[in-house]
């Protein structure tokens, strides 16, 4: 794809997510059209979390990344990695990841728009999947990260 075509496609993807965010009513804390980036937060909850929607114009990818507001201690990062793998195995789209440098837990969903724009429906699905998946698993990840449950107990949690 030519550079201009890539820029236009990236702009269309950004606009689609702008619309999707307003329809899903996730609060946008900062919208940066020049960086093709949205900085968002989940709705009111006991444990809200931040997530970002960024458009990578050079690779024609939209990346939605949510960050849980806690992390694994250095000596628990391997358990965190195994826990992420355990969860990912049963998740259809997206992946939990534990950052090896600092133990923070993210959930990432990517979608390509090369040769084919992302529809509003698909954008809404990405946002809702990210938030729903993180909400579903955040409590048990927190218990594990805090050491309230062992890794074996984490595996037994529904």
């Amino acid at each position: 794809m030519e550079d201009n075509a890539k820029k236009e496609a990236a702009k269309r993807a950004f606009d689609t997510f702008d619309k999707a965010l307003s329809l899903t009513r996730y609060p946008v804390r900062r919208k940066q059209p020049d960086k093709l980036l949205f900085n968002c937060v989940t709705k009111e909850d006991l444990m809200p979390f931040a997530f970002y929607v960024s458009v990578d114009a050079s690779r024609c990818i939209v990346r939605c990344t949510g960050y849980l507001p806690f992390r694994f201690r250095e000596d628990m990062i391997v358990d965190g990695c195994k826990a992420a793998c355990f969860l990912n195995y049963n998740i259809f789209n997206g992946a939990f990841c534990v950052e090896l440098r600092n133990g923070y837990i993210s959930f990432v969903i990517n979608e390509s728009y090369e040769e084919c724009d992302i529809s509003l429906e698909a954008a809404i699905e990405m946002l809702n999947t990210l938030v729903a998946t993180m909400n579903l698993h955040k409590d048990k990840l927190l218990y594990l990260a805090r050491g309230s449950i062992t890794f074996d107990e984490f595996l037994e949690q529904k």
């Binding site: 990578d56 690779r59 990818i61 990346r63 990062i77 391997v78 990695c81 195994k82 992420a84 793998c85 990912n88 992946a95 939990f96 990841c97 534990v98 950052e99 090896l100 993210s106 990432v108 990517n110 390509s112």
Partner: peptide, 15 residues
Amino acid sequence: SVIANAYNARAPRGR
């Protein structure tokens, strides 16, 4: 598991 995490955090597509 550590390898999978490193890959999944950075891969533009797939996991």
